[in-house]
Simulated scan of single mutants.
Amino acid sequence: MNHVRVETKPAFRLIGFKTALEGGTSIHAPQYSVQKTTFFKSKLENGQLPGIRPLAEGPYGYAAVAVEDGVARYYAGVVSAKPLPEHTDELRFPGGEYAVLSGQGGLSRLAFDRLEDQAFGSLFTEAYEYEYSGGPIAEVLLNGNPADAEVEVWVPVRKRQ
């Protein structure tokens, strides 16, 4: 099992690009993986992600999954409080407690998938004191190297009743 901790994070805002994910309406589904990779790569290759990089408040790369109006959506972008550029979208993360799952090694997409599978497959059980609270999930590339990634997944949680 990879490292897991719960920590309080301040509210933050991701700006970037979004797409609808097909094949599910939940926040996490295995069929999203290829769709996420394809979308993220397309935004890199067409220059859109590098174009908003100067707006980033830090060195990390971000993606996110959120369910909006019953549709799972995937975002690729940067964390920034700067004005929203034309043709971009924003996703606001509330401040609060997050389960932070961390891992390293291998391709970033595979690392993110492993951590999300861990969270929704074995972590959030009745025995765990926290449960998923329903907000967006952040995928954070810490080392800037998607081929040998150091990553975190931030899942919003609340104490189980």
Rank of each mutant, 00 (worst) to 15 (best):
N2P: 15
H3A: 12
R5C: 12
R5I: 13
E7Q: 15
T8M: 14
R13F: 05
I15A: 10
I15K: 11
G16Q: 06
E22P: 01
H28V: 10
A29T: 04
Q31E: 15
T37H: 11
F39M: 10
F39R: 05
F40C: 08
S42R: 07
K43P: 03
K43D: 01
L44A: 10
L49C: 04
I52K: 06
I52D: 06
A56F: 05
E57Q: 13
G61D: 07
A63R: 03
A63K: 03
A64P: 05
V65H: 07
V65G: 10
A66F: 01
D69H: 08
A72P: 03
A72I: 04
A76G: 10
A76H: 01
V78R: 01
K82L: 14
E86T: 13
E86Y: 05
D89Q: 13
E90L: 10
G95E: 15
L101M: 08
S102K: 01
L110H: 14
L110I: 11
A111M: 02
D117C: 08
Q118R: 09
S122G: 11
T125G: 12
G134M: 10
A138Q: 03
N145H: 14
A147Q: 15
A149W: 00
E150W: 09
V151N: 00
Q161G: 15
Q161C: 09
